[in-house]
Amino acid sequence: MVEQIIVKSVEEALSRLSERKYIIYAGGTDLIVQNRTVSEAPIPFKNPVLYCANLKELKYVKEGDDYLYIGAMTTLSELLTYESVPKLLKEAIEQMASPAIRNIATLAGNLGNASPAGDSLVPLYTLNALIKCQSVKASRLIPIQDFFVGLKKTALTDSEMITEIIIPKNRFKSTMYRKVGTRKADALSKVSFAGAYSIVHDKICDFRISIGAVNVTVVRRFDIEAKLIGKTIEQAQKMKNQIISLYLSSIKPINDQRSNIEYRTQVTKNLISAFMDTLD
């Protein structure tokens, strides 16, 4: 049996992480499915485990003047109870799994799992979230698009854990979240989408699109977004086909048990088009 520790404080967790590699265990909704073998047997973890779900220090949502701070062990259900949590993120969480899973699963776990189909990722990309990665020595604030470095790969080192997710307070004119899946509950996404925009003096001043499950990491293209800044809605509508084809050139959907390339490509087109139709 590998070493398994129920940590009592963040300080203890970080000090243990500085000594060796551990599996950081939050709600465990991903870890248990990934590591279980037969019924009734203890989970055969391959590395030592730090159980962190009960770290009260990391269960919070705090609002500052410019940012919202989410403690890493806050559950998805808890997040839904806060007025300050952005609508875009809430809409994604409401469509994740089922109440029973949301009552134990965490946002940090969805990030740590690093599946390109993780449903909290697209809203967090669109919201410009920052991931706080802490070790005994230092703490790094990593913009979400730099946190994911490849398929199921994050920028976290073995001595670090996510302690907080930080979301800048944005005031968008409108946002749109869509998850395209099969069954409503407990279904993994075939494609997910989070868009947001703002308009000042009849011109687009902020335009963001994140698309999930169509490449190894979420697609967010700042260069394409920049083309629409300063444009009127009419000008933007005329550019719609051009914008869609630019996005299609940066997606690499796959065939898998959930869907296929043609379907994912068509859905991506439709979602961008539907979002651009909401410009108003």
């Binding site: 129920i6 265990y25 465990g28 989970i43 159980y51 779900a53 109440p99 029973a100 009552n103 134990i104």
Partner: peptide, 23 residues
């Protein structure tokens, strides 16, 4: 959901919760 129990009055699936987290 066949294994559901209440944890602090909220539904969870007991197949997906380890003993450690119930402490």
């Amino acid at each position: 959901g066949a294994c559901a129990v209440l944890l602090d009055h909220k539904i969870v699936n007991s197949c997906s919760v380890v003993l450690a987290n119930v402490d």
